[in-house]
Write a protein that binds this DNA or RNA. Structure first.
Lengths: 299, 299
DNA sequence: ACTTAATCATAGCTAAAGCCTATCAATTAA
DNA sequence: TTAATTGATAGGCTTTAGCTATGATTAAGT
C-alpha cells in the first residue's frame, strides 16, 4: 500500500530538485527522504528520479506519477479540511422525531429557541407514531425523539423535558364543563372518546380513565387530535387532551378545557437518543433549550 | 498525517457495519481495525462510528468523511494503476536529439525499424547543433542524442553506432571528379567549402583537410549541407560530405561523390545519454535497432 | 432465568518501519 | 590541492501497526 508521506516526498523532490531542500520542506532529514524515495521506487518497480551530483531530475515516469501524487494529496487534504469543518459539534443535520399528538402543538413553542441556540443545526422534523420512531431511531434514520418515555424504551437513553398535563375537553353544555376543582374521579361513569390504536396518548389517557372508572367509547376512534377535538366540539362526547393541544383556545367557543386538581394526570415528555449517540453536546443544548422554552408555557 | 490504511478501514466499516467482517475484508484482525479506527477518530477529534453490540452505524460526520475517504482511495488507486502502466520499460515518450548534418539523412533509414522494434515508444525528434543538444540532454529536455562522440563529452555515456565515411563532393568538371583510388592527400592545395561555425561536421571535416594540406574557403560558409551541396553543384568548389548525405545520388548529374581509400576519413556516430538514465533497456534496444539498420547501408 | 453465542473493547507483546545522527563518496569550485 | 556541496550508506532508536488472548456486554435460545 502506497503511503501518503512518500507522495509528499516525491512532490517535494519535484518542487526543489534537491534532496536536502526537499527534505527540509518535509521536516525530515535528507537520508530519510532519500531512503523513503528509494523504497517507493523499489515498491513501484520503476525509477522515478535521476540522481546526479549537480542535477536531480524526474524520469518521465516520475513526472507522470507526480501529477497523480498531487491529486491524491489534494483529495487527502480535502478529507482533512472536511473533518475540520465537521469538528463543530453544534453544526450539521439533525433528524428529530415527534409523535403526532405532540408535534403540531409543541414545535411552535420550541423551534424558534432551538434555531437561536443552535443556529448551525439543520433540523429535519419527522412525525410518526412511537413504535415507528423508535425503530427509525435504532436504525439511525433519526437522531433524536421527543415523546412520552415509557418503560419499554430502556434500551435507549432519555432526558425528561417536561410533564404535560392532560386536560378534560368537554362540550360547553356538558355537566363537567363548568365544574370547579375538577378531579379524575369525576370521570366515573363517563364514556371517553379516544384516538385510534397506535397512538400512545390513547393508552396513557385511557389508563387514567379506567382507573377513574370511566370507559372507552368504542363507537369511534379518531385518527388525529383535531378530529377528536371536532368530535367534542360537536357534542359527541368528552376526552382527555394534552395541555399543549388544549392551549390557544382552539374552538374555545364550543369546547371547555378543564384542569384537573391533584393528582394531575400528566404524560412525561422526554428526549430520547441512542446510548453512545455521537453528538451529546448537541443533545444537551436541545434539552436545555426545550426546557427553557417550556418553562414559559407550562406552569 | 492521515494514513490510507485508516481510510480503508473506515470504508470497510461503512460497507459491512460490522467490525469483524470489515476487519476480515481488510485482512487484519478485529482488534487491529478497532484500534486503528479509534485512533483515527481521536486524531480527527470527532466520532465517526456509533458502536452498539447489535448495530454499528456511522455518525453523520462519518458518513460525510467516508465519501471523502473513497475519493482519496480512488485517487491512490489511480496512482498505482498508473505506475503499473508505466512499468513497461518499452513504452512512453522519448525525445531524440540529432544534429542537422545527420538527421535528414539518417532518420529515413532508422525510424521504420525503431518503430517496429519499439512500437509503444513515441519518438519526438529534435534537430539542433551539438552544443545545444548536449545542454538539453543535461537538462533532461532530451533523452537520447545521436551525434559524433567527441572527447569533451566524457561526462555522458555513449554507445558507438557506426562510422560514417566522409566523401569528396566535386563538380563533375573538377580534376578529382573521375580520379580512381582517391586519397586524402589528393586534397593538397585545394580550397574546401565549409559549413558555418557551430556545426561539428565543419570541425571534423576541416581537421582531415588541414592535415592533408587543404585550406578552408573563407569566402562563404554554408548554413546547411543542402546549401553546401548546391554550391558544389554550381561549381563553386569542393567539400567533404558525410556518406549518408551523399547517398541517394542527389544532384548526381552535376556532382561526383568520391570514396577515399584508406585511411578513410570518418566521423564516429554514437548514441549519447546521461549516465544513470532510467530507461537503459530502451536505450539498448535503440542501439541494436540502429546498428542493424545501418549495417544494411554502410558497408 | 440461565446459558450460549455474538461482538466490540482492552491488554500485552512483537516485528517492522520511519526517523535520526554520523559518515562516506563523488563532484564542483576556488 | 583544498574546501564545499550533495546524495548514499550504516547503525541505532522509537514509534506503531499488527497479532493473540481475554474481558464485558448484549441478544437469543433453552
Amino acid at each position: 500500500m502506497i503511503k501518503l508521506r512518500d507522495l509528499e516526498y516525491l512532490t517535494a523532490i519535484d518542487k526543489y530538485k534537491h534532496f536536502g531542500k526537499a527534505a527540509q520542506s518535509c521536516f525530515v532529514s535528507q537520508p530519510t527522504l532519500s531512503g523513503q524515495l528509494m523504497k517507493l521506487e523499489e515498491q513501484l518497480g520503476l525509477q522515478l528520479v535521476e540522481r546526479h551530483r549537480r542535477n536531480v531530475m524526474l524520469t518521465p515516469a516520475g513526472e507522470q506519477l507526480v501529477k497523480e501524487a498531487r491529486k491524491v494529496l489534494q483529495a487527502a487534504g480535502h478529507f482533512e479540511s472536511c473533518a475540520k469543518a465537521l469538528l463543530d459539534p453544534f453544526a450539521g443535520d439533525l433528524h428529530l422525531g415527534l409523535i403526532p399528538t405532540l408535534a403540531p402543538y409543541l414545535l411552535p413553542h420550541i423551534m424558534a429557541d432551538l434555531n437561536t441556540s443552535l443556529p448551525n443545526i439543520n433540523f429535519f422534523l419527522h412525525e410518526n407514531q412511537t413504535k415507528i420512531l423508535l425503530q427509525q431511531l435504532d436504525e439511525g434514520k433519526l437522531d433524536v425523539l421527543i415523546l412520552p418515555y415509557l418503560a419499554d424504551m430502556d434500551k435507549f437513553e432519555s432526558y425528561k423535558l417536561f410533564d404535560e398535563p392532560l386536560m378534560l375537553a368537554t362540550p360547553k353544555s356538558h355537566r363537567l364543563a363548568n365544574k370547579k376543582e375538577l378531579s379524575l374521579s369525576d370521570l366515573h361513569g363517563e364514556k371517553i372518546l379516544t384516538l385510534a390504536d397506535g397512538h400512545c396518548l390513547k393508552d396513557q389517557a385511557m389508563g387514567y380513565c379506567f382507573s377513574a372508572g370511566a370507559k372507552e367509547d368504542n363507537s369511534f376512534q379518531a385518527t388525529s387530535l383535531e378530529t377528536l377535538r371536532h368530535m367534542v366540539a360537536s357534542g359527541m362526547g368528552i376526552t382527555l387532551l394534552p395541555a399543549l393541544a388544549a392551549q390557544g383556545n382552539l374552538a374555545s367557543d364550543t369546547i371547555q378545557y378543564g384542569k384537573f386538581q391533584s393528582p394531575v394526570p400528566v404524560r412525561g415528555i422526554s428526549l430520547v437518543i441512542r446510548p453512545n449517540y455521537s453528538r451529546m453536546q448537541c443533545v444537551r443544548s436541545i434539552v436545555a433549550s426545550v426546557r427553557k422554552s417550556l418553562s414559559r408555557i407550562i406552569t
